[in-house]
């Protein structure tokens, strides 16, 4: 059947299409700015996309199950404030970091409680926790900032191994772990099964609630990691850290080919999506395009990406 041969080619080319977009983007941007196409600029860019990338890994799995988490940006702000302000209050920094991780995990668990126990849609739940976490961060910090961290804290966000930023290594390790988890373990199969048909998965013995809880808690952990790296990179803990992060993350994931309706998506696609968005942001900044245009472009990009995705998927089917 011809119609069966076409989808296979299309499926193979999905990541290739993304790569082609990336190459085109790189060429276009290097024409706009002479600094763009240099190794040092690429390594420098990677310092900025690691936070988006880490969170995008968790978001990919959540979106594959048909869920979504809008609270990640607010969660990053809350973790940043939690570790910064307990440190300011006298808690030793290592303990404050653990506390931050705890807050990230707790935030994810709190999301999952509403989603699994009350069977509420993740969208509304995380819209609520977005306001709650950001509000807690603002309230606890009283809209103030902490910045007098000890020197060693800079390691998390400003460390270089040779010319390679430390957080890039963290990201690569995280990508490897989540990739193995999703593509090579039973847990990964469960994630796809839930996304394709939650009820069927439940009746087939998939522990749906447990898998979902683990996903949101795991994403909370990644948010905490991203928050530590971010706070260290800018050496400031502030309540508005991570504002709009959810837009970058969700855009990267759907750009990478994950269906917003659940059931499909890959880590490779997400990583490509993250790199494309980071490249675009970095390139636009270097080409002196104002951040206001960047927000406009990213918002439109998100809509176009989802549209193209579902369009491609329909041709595949």
């Amino acid at each position: 059947m011809i119609s069966a041969a076409v989808p296979r080619r299309l499926k193979l080319s999905r990541e290739l299409v993304l790569l082609a977009i990336l190459v085109a983007l790189v060429i276009a941007l290097s024409l706009m700015s002479p600094v763009f196409l240099t190794i040092s600029n690429f390594l420098n860019t990677s310092r900025f996309f690691v936070e988006i990338g880490l969170v995008a890994l968790g978001m990919t799995l959540i979106i594959i199950t048909g869920g979504i988490d809008l609270s990640v940006g607010a969660g990053l702000g809350l973790v940043s404030v939690a570790l910064g302000f307990t440190f300011k209050a006298g808690l030793p920094l290592p303990l404050a970091l653990f506390l931050g991780v705890g807050v990230g995990l707790a935030g994810g668990y709190f999301n999952s409680l509403f989603i699994t126990k009350l069977d509420l849609h993740p969208l509304v739940v995380t819209l609520g926790t977005l306001a709650l976490y950001r509000g807690l961060a603002l309230g606890l910090s009283r809209a103030d900032a902490v910045s007098n961290f000890p020197g060693w804290f800079a390691y998390f966000g400003q460390f270089y191994l040779g010319a390679v930023p430390g957080q890039l290594i963290v990201f690569i390790v995280a990508v490897a772990i989540v990739w193995v988890l999703l593509a090579r373990t039973r847990y990964g199969r469960y994630v796809y099964a839930i996304g394709n048909n939650e009820q069927a998965a439940h009746f087939s013995g998939v522990p749906v609630a447990r898998v979902k809880t683990a996903l949101y808690v795991g994403t909370g952990l990644l948010v905490a990691l991203a928050a530590i790296i971010y706070t260290s990179r800018v050496s400031t803990a502030r309540a508005d850290s991570g504002t709009g992060l959810e837009l970058d993350v969700i855009s990267a994931v759907v750009l990478g080919g994950a269906s917003i309706y659940g059931g499909s998506g890959t880590i490779a696609g997400t990583v490509l999506g993250v790199v494309i968005i980071a490249t675009l942001r970095n390139g636009l900044t270097l080409a002196a395009v104002a951040t206001t245009y960047q927000v406009l472009i990213l918002g439109l990009l998100l809509i176009v990406a989802v549209f193209l995705n579902e369009f491609f998927r329909k041709t595949e089917e």
Partner: peptide
């Protein structure tokens, strides 16, 4: 949710 999230940022931009 995706459309209006995108529009939230696009319109502000």
């Amino acid at each position: 949710i995706i459309v209006t999230l995108g529009m939230l940022y696009a319109l502000r931009g």
